[in-house]
Design a protein around this nucleic acid. Sequence first.
DNA 1: ACAATTTTCAAACAACTGTTTAAAAATTAC
DNA 2: GTAATTTTTAAACAGTTGTTTGAAAATTGT
Lengths: 211, 211
Amino acid sequence: MRQGTKHKIMDSAERLFAERGFSDTSLRLITSHAEVNLASVNYHFGSKKELIQAVLMRYLEAFMPQLDRAMQAHLDSEQAPSLDDIFNAFVEPLLSMNEQRKHGTSLFLLLLGRGYTDSQGHLRKFITHHFGEVLDRFQAAVRRAYPQLTEAEMFWRLHFTLGTVVFTMASSAALRDIANADFNEQVNVETLIRKVIPYLAAGVGAPIQQQ
Amino acid sequence: MRQGTKHKIMDSAERLFAERGFSDTSLRLITSHAEVNLASVNYHFGSKKELIQAVLMRYLEAFMPQLDRAMQAHLDSEQAPSLDDIFNAFVEPLLSMNEQRKHGTSLFLLLLGRGYTDSQGHLRKFITHHFGEVLDRFQAAVRRAYPQLTEAEMFWRLHFTLGTVVFTMASSAALRDIANADFNEQVNVETLIRKVIPYLAAGVGAPIQQQ
DNA sequence: ACAATTTTCAAACAACTGTTTAAAAATTAC
DNA sequence: GTAATTTTTAAACAGTTGTTTGAAAATTGT
């Protein structure tokens, strides 16, 4: 076999999950795209749910260590980082997803978005359980850049940020078409990521309101 | 009957759609919650798709005119509005959804989020088709507050904004539980909306990058 | 080469989906 | 009060879903 059945399933699944969401993607659709037998999903992964986790895990295991190294660097540096620095540290790990798989960056962010909106809160627990220390380090880096921000306020602003990224990517294909048609602007994933970073940094860095 | 079948269906449907998404909410689930016969959905609405549109439309028809008036005021005012002014203009129309229905604000934003992520781009067309002029006026108000922002850049930043709001609301129940547990912070929809506005205004108002 | 193991395959499973039907019931109009 | 209309109901429809089965095929170890 040119490529293992297991990998063929995951490759087809991730593309279809990203396009149509988890519950709108049937195993029959996945297996026909992958040109494998229907039963092989249950044989190799056990269930559809475990296939979804496997697809997400493959990306997270590649992404998280890279992000962690970047956050460590910002924690260890002499000078406190700016929020722009911190969010820019996401760019390289995200773009590196394109190396291991074509359109990897989009697919990864798309899947993240799907995971957060399709199943209510499951993904959050999944990620914090497996990569809690990485997220802690990210949070610590943000605290170093903006110490006046209270813990609670940071919690909310970082979730706003997650929402911005996840939603933008979930609808990025459609939005890019519109941008192309209306402004004759060719936008690829990288330029989109670079567009969103100043927005995020400014949002997280917004002055603190008293209420 | 105390309440018409049509309304009972819509009330149950909107709650379930918001909780579980459109395709994970079956007509049998809706009709059993509403305590009406299964076939009444097709009798009153024609199809599931038309039920979804009806549920969304009920909110949009109440929300959009209010938003439009607020935007008109910002366009007609002597002084150019700030971005904070503009985004604060959303607060009252959003909160007024709570008057016409319990948890109306959350449900409305939840449904908006579902509509954008579940079906790819359908909702966008639906809204721009029915409420295009309102969105145009919103865009004009933003332009008045930040004239240096190019048309294309504004397009992206407003979609970042939509993403922030929509995603935050989609996971707001879970997040509010966490905030309550971790920071002993009681967050209702109104305080959450007031928290997100400085973030959005700062994001949209971020300095322009040259690339 | 043969035996043991792993993987593939077509078929069937039971449960669920949105929708349609035609008769019963309730409501409205006169 | 009775006829016409609207609404509700239970049942069935045809199609899809994830999963399981047991035999066939392919691969591996010796």
